[in-house]
């Protein structure tokens, strides 16, 4: 079946994914279809209980879906793998290990044959990347919430995964800290061309970070209802992007969806194959993946 929501060359393909928990009649989500291209940053937004975390866990291989497939780089995801790094909601650092050892634990898992010096050098590189070199030998309990989450991010990046999965990584942080870490994440992702899938509740965060924003309808039988293409320039910054009128068009579209339309589209009323949406632009809705649109525009 050719699915228009999934570009043919997509690196990650999520096809008709669904999850029904035992004992419940209705699926939490069903017919979830989307694709992620290599190097893309994709955010998923939706109300609590629509199964975002379950989708992320299915992508990670930590949970099995009851229907559908996840295919990464041509191979079906059947279990957890070092090719997919996960940043957990609650940072999930091991409190008995220092920052260095927490990351070294991950590095040694990926490269068991490395010498201690190699591991150390690699760990130090990634700790420096998130700006925590001064705290490298501290235990997580001695770090602030934001620092802990940065260690979690460094740990996920350190294994150089093909895909990074972030489960609402900044949810527990205060607004200021969140801003700094968002900037850091944005910089690192641009530098490393990392493919990222991230859950968030923060509309501004999604617009800043994501190339594509997946909008989920409410559960039960939630679906990815729309794929919003971020039309802000790639060079956008947190401090400058709200001066772009396009920012508000996108933001209003997202907020309108969450406030008004998400609930109406529950119980499977959302399309099983989401449209690409360009808020504020003339080709407001299209069935075609964005690179085809660009071709049309240039033609």
């Amino acid at each position: 079946m050719l699915n228009k929501a999934i570009p043919e060359d997509a690196f990650l393909r999520v096809e008709n994914l669904g999850k029904t928990y035992p004992g419940s009649e209705e699926a939490v989500f069903e017919n979830v279809n989307f694709g992620i291209e290599r190097g893309q940053f994709v955010c998923i937004i939706g109300h609590s209980g629509c199964g975002k975390t379950t989708i992320l866990n299915a992508l990670a291989g930590l949970e099995t879906a009851s229907a559908g497939h996840v295919i990464m780089a041509g191979r079906e995801v059947v279990g957890p793998s070092l090719e997919r790094g996960v940043v957990f909601q609650g940072h999930a650092l091991m409190p008995w290990l220092s920052v260095r050892k927490n990351i070294a634990f991950a590095v040694r898992s990926k490269w068991p044959d490395w010498s201690k010096a190699q591991v150390d050098a690699h760990v130090e590189k990634y700790v420096a990347m998130v700006g925590l070199s001064h705290a490298i030998d501290k235990k997580p309990s001695a770090l602030s919430g934001g620092m802990k989450q940065r260690v979690g991010i460094a740990r996920a990046f350190a294994i150089e995964p093909k895909m990074l999965l972030l489960d609402e990584p900044f949810g527990a942080l205060d607004a200021l800290t969140r801003g700094t870490i968002q900037d850091e994440l944005l910089r690192i992702c641009r530098e490393t061309q990392q493919t990222v899938f991230m859950i968030t509740h923060d509309v501004d965060e999604a617009i800043l970070l994501a190339d594509r924003i997946l909008l989920m309808s409410n559960g039960p039988r939630a679906r990815v209802a729309e794929i919003v293409v971020n039309t802000l320039p790639a060079s956008r910054t947190r401090s400058g992007m709200h001066h772009d009128p396009q920012f508000y068009r996108i933001r209003n579209h997202l907020v309108d969806f969450l406030v008004q339309r998400a609930a109406k589209l529950s119980h499977g009323q959302a399309p099983s194959s989401p449209h690409f949406v360009y808020p504020g632009l003339e080709s407001a809705e299209t069935d075609s993946p964005p690179h085809l649109v660009k071709q049309k525009e240039s033609a």
């Binding site: 930590l62 793998s81 996960v86 957990f88 091991m94 634990f105």
Partner: peptide, 22 residues
């Protein structure tokens, strides 16, 4: 905590190492 076990799972940590190190 489930989180720590999930970390070990995503890092494909073999069972014996998981038992002793996590």
């Amino acid at each position: 905590r489930r989180d720590w076990l999930n970390v070990a799972r995503t890092l494909e940590v073999p069972p014996l190492r998981r038992a002793f190190e996590v």
